[in-house]
Amino acid sequence: MTHSVSMTVNGKSVSGEVESRTLLVQFLREHLRLTGTHVGCDTSQCGACVVHKDGQSIKSCTILAAQCDGADVTTIEGLADGDTLHPMQEAFRENHGLQCGFCTPGMVMSALDLVKNNPDPSEKEIREWLEGNICRCTGYHNIVKSIKAGAGSMR
């Protein structure tokens, strides 16, 4: 079965026809060509697909596009202001918070949800918050450092 969906993605109104089984992440990547949101697993565990929906971080691989009709979605592409990176993106760049970069969009989107409610998170709080974001490269150390720095420059 197909559904017409309309939503706001990174501030722009978008719409499309999706199957019932189309996941939000497929809609973002395949229909809108916003390929910054990644898919790293099929078990809802890795967090590479994290986006914000109506102000909350969620795994876009575990929600149907049809469920997001009318939603307000922000992806990694929605953060930078032209060529100026968002302070959290800049902090990842400055602090070597990525190696291959596959997990990074999810890390950044997840970090922003943490900082929204907790503007000055401790290292422990950051590590606990990243429970649902898996990185195969960095060993997390510099990701935690980046988020601390990013939170600092956002305050």
Partner: peptide, 9 residues
């Protein structure tokens, strides 16, 4: 339970 994104949904 799980992680923040699991808890959000």
């Amino acid at each position: 339970i799980g992680d923040p994104q699991v808890r959000n949904r």
